[in-house]
């Protein structure tokens, strides 16, 4: 089964309920989209992520009411360096969508804990392992590593063996 080519044209992807909803709301908040291997990724402008998430959660036709996961990818030394990745699921419509926020100059973004309380641990984990700050998080502390740990282990400039 050869891989289908990636689609990045917004016009061709408008049929997906999440993208249609976001474009109708504020087309400037959508930086781009990608359809690859049957999965839709939408790039959201950094300052609109919380509103975009709230909008998708409360959508009447296709509510993405379930936050599956929040994680991060470090593209060091490329810029923008961090990509925060949100996986959403619509339990009623059985659809998935992936939202991404690119963080260039400063590793901080709005927390989505006010939209889904589930984001609490996920965001703490990202903060713990990547050092990305989530503004408005109720309790942003290290989750897995010791409180006094130096550095952020999942960053690409952190050696696999750790600092000696």
């Amino acid at each position: 089964m050869p891989l289908a080519p990636t689609i990045t044209e917004l016009e061709q992807l408008k049929g997906h309920p999440a993208l249609a909803k976001l474009l109708a709301w504020n087309s400037e908040a959508v930086e781009g989209a990608k359809f690859d291997r049957d999965e839709l990724t939408i790039y959201i402008e950094r300052s609109s992520i919380r509103e975009a998430c709230g909008l998708l959660r409360d959508d009447r036709d296709c509510p993405f009411n379930f936050l599956v996961d929040v994680t991060c990818v470090d593209w060091y030394p490329k810029q923008p360096r961090f990509e925060i990745v949100y996986h959403l699921l619509s339990i009623t419509r059985k659809e998935r969508v992936r939202l991404k926020v690119r963080l260039g100059d400063s590793p901080e973004v709005d927390s989505v804990t006010s939209v889904w309380p589930a984001a609490n641990y996920f965001e703490r984990e990202v903060y713990d392992l990547f050092g990305v700050r989530f503004n408005g998080h109720p309790y942003l502390r290290r989750l897995l590593m010791p409180e006094d740990w130096e550095g952020y282990p999942l960053r690409k400039d952190y050696p696999v063996e750790g600092y000696r």
């Binding site: 599956v68 996961d69 994680t71 990818v73 470090d74 589930a118 609490n120 641990y121 996920f122 984990e125």
Partner: peptide, 13 residues
């Protein structure tokens, strides 16, 4: 990058 979405982590909340 490999990330595991752990069901237990969310359930523990």
């Amino acid at each position: 990058r490999v990330h595991m979405r752990a069901a237990c982590l969310a359930n523990l909340q």
